[in-house]
Design a protein around this nucleic acid. Structure first.
Lengths: 122, 122
DNA sequence: TCACATAGGGATAAATTTTTCCCCTATTGT
DNA sequence: ACAATAGGGGAAAAATTTATCCCTATGTGA
């Protein structure tokens, strides 16, 4: 586990939510778990662009922040299921609002992002 | 300017909004600009934990993504004002939803975050 | 004359996040 | 014996983001 060298800011709501949600795949993990994809292998299939490792790491952080809970079934082969805690569920409308804005502005965003990338990258 | 080595994912709304909003200070910048703090030096004072440099960089990205516009007054000493574009203004309710969730859960989040930090950091 | 405010950029270092690669668990089926 | 399955973790590399430091320019006030 990486050991932080600097303390995070915890002043306002934006700081606080950032600490628990600021990870490349966290919102997607919460979203898909909420949709019923509870097993790690399912989540990996839903988010193929993320490495298996980082999904595990971010799931553990979500668990430590009490947004998801984890059940380990003592069977072989192993079986694990994640689900949202009540606290985690309160985040769904927020993630929804974020995703909806992105969806609503899809074409414009894609073109803006690509235009900027091209001008810098080569 | 840093040149990306890998292309970003631009599949869904979450990917897209992430590309324009995923920067440590971007939401705060949009927020404070919306509140009327339009000059770079004001913004630096409102966000003292960020380095001057990174604020400039993130402001430029916000501008390239057409979320803010920048007016440079040809005077000495220099004067610059940022303001939200109409597009940028549509993000305010989203940022508001995010910040409100953080504010509403302030104590719980702070304690969860600190507890986790302590257990890893020393 | 000197310090300060204003805005911003280059170069480089440091911090942090994410990826890659490889190993381990134990059982079932071939 | 050996592969497949399902889940997980260590170590190191790569990618990315943020911080530090120094330099530009000019008018104002002490």
């Amino acid at each position: 586990m990486y050991e932080r060298k600097t303390l995070p800011n915890l002043n306002c709501g934006l700081d606080l939510i950032g600490e628990v949600l600021y990870g490349k795949w966290k919102m997607r993990l919460l979203w898909f778990i909420n949709e019923g994809h509870q097993r790690p292998s399912e989540l990996q299939r839903k988010i193929p662009d993320a490495s298996r490792r980082v999904l595990n790491i971010q799931l553990k952080e979500l668990e430590e922040h009490e947004l998801v809970s984890k059940i380990i079934y003592p069977v072989v082969p192993p079986k694990v299921e994640y689900s949202l805690t009540d606290f985690g569920k309160t985040l769904i409308p927020v993630i929804s609002a974020i995703g909806n804005w992105g969806d609503a502005n899809e074409e414009r965003l894609r073109s803006l992002i690509l235009k900027r990338l091209e001008s810098y990258n080569q």
